[in-house]
Amino acid sequence: MPSNDTNYAYVRGEILPLESASLHISDLSIQRGFGVFDYFKVEANHPLFLNDYLARFRESARLMTMQLPHTDEQLREIIHELITRNNMPLSGMKMILTGGYSENSYDLAEPSLLIMQQPLAMPGPETLGKGIKIITHEYIREIPRAKTINYTMGIRLIGEVKSKAASDVLYHLNGAVSEFPRCNLFVVHQDGTVMTPDSGILLGVTRKNVLALAEKKYPVREGSVTLYDIMQAKEVFLTSTTKRILPIVQVDDTVIGEGVPGPVTQTLLQDLILLEEVDRKLQKQL
């Protein structure tokens, strides 16, 4: 495996050094913030659960009336070429599809496809051992099933999150919670049922894997989850590609359960780590 200090990216049909990778200012991602993306983890130079991420990327494009310019097999070839060139054993890879170089800054053009790889740091033992605090905010994303590049609200709230010594913000509407800017939510009710919202959310790949793992050990439900449910829960945690499972021990001013990560959260995290190991082994056999 080659090793060098150059980071390569794919931009509109070319693999280029990252410092040379750019889009024209007419691109609709710049002019109107129009585009979709997806993001997956690379461990030991193997992309984890890649089929799921490619399927969601293609669905996001469809929902935004765009079409990917490559087949899944062609995308895999580009991804593996970048992994070989960049040699970042633990990293994240982002695929972005934009509205293209629009002549009038409004109409869709030939889509721009970008793929880039960046170093990734996972939550450490201290964070996992203590859990995190989150705050809440009334908001719901437009077209939540599409993973769009519009993160305006989440970015605007960064200052408030930090000022309240929190780690993230949970969206809700009229008391019904949906998701975080970049994560899904799970609660463990007092009767042991594991539950996650089923509407107004992006269908996370980690969410999908955690649901499948939880069904093997606990009662599981997808449905409406309210702020009241969270405040009364035994455990609360979030899921995402970059965080796996992260325990939540405080929501606004309310301490969840005993204020420490609970056994269900910890068990599912270990199960998820094992599932990732299985996927890596399967990738090596292909």
Rank of each mutant, 00 (worst) to 15 (best):
T239W: 06
E110Y: 03
N174L: 03
Y106R: 07
Q74A: 15
L48E: 07
S178Q: 05
Q270K: 15
T136W: 11
D52E: 15
K281Y: 13
L268M: 08
Y218A: 01
G159N: 12
L16R: 03
Q117P: 07
E142K: 12
T193M: 06
P219G: 01
D198N: 15
F57L: 11
V188Y: 08
E43P: 00
E73I: 13
G92W: 08
E59M: 12
E19H: 14
Q67N: 13
I248L: 10
I201T: 03
Y39P: 04
T6E: 10
G204A: 03
F57N: 09
N174M: 08
I273E: 14
N104S: 03
E126G: 06
I79R: 00
N87T: 02
M66W: 07
R12H: 06
T84V: 14
Q283N: 15
N7K: 04
L269F: 10
G204H: 00
L203Q: 14
G154A: 01
Y228H: 12
R12Y: 04
Q74P: 11
L173T: 15
F237K: 06
G154C: 05
V264F: 05
G33Q: 09
S26F: 11
Q250A: 07
A165T: 14
P125A: 12
T241E: 01
P263C: 02
D168M: 11
Y228V: 04
N45H: 11
H172E: 07
G99R: 00
V177S: 00
M95S: 09
L282M: 04
P123C: 08
G100D: 00
P17G: 01
K208I: 06
E59V: 05
K281F: 11
R145S: 12
L227W: 08
Y218S: 02
C183I: 05
L173N: 12
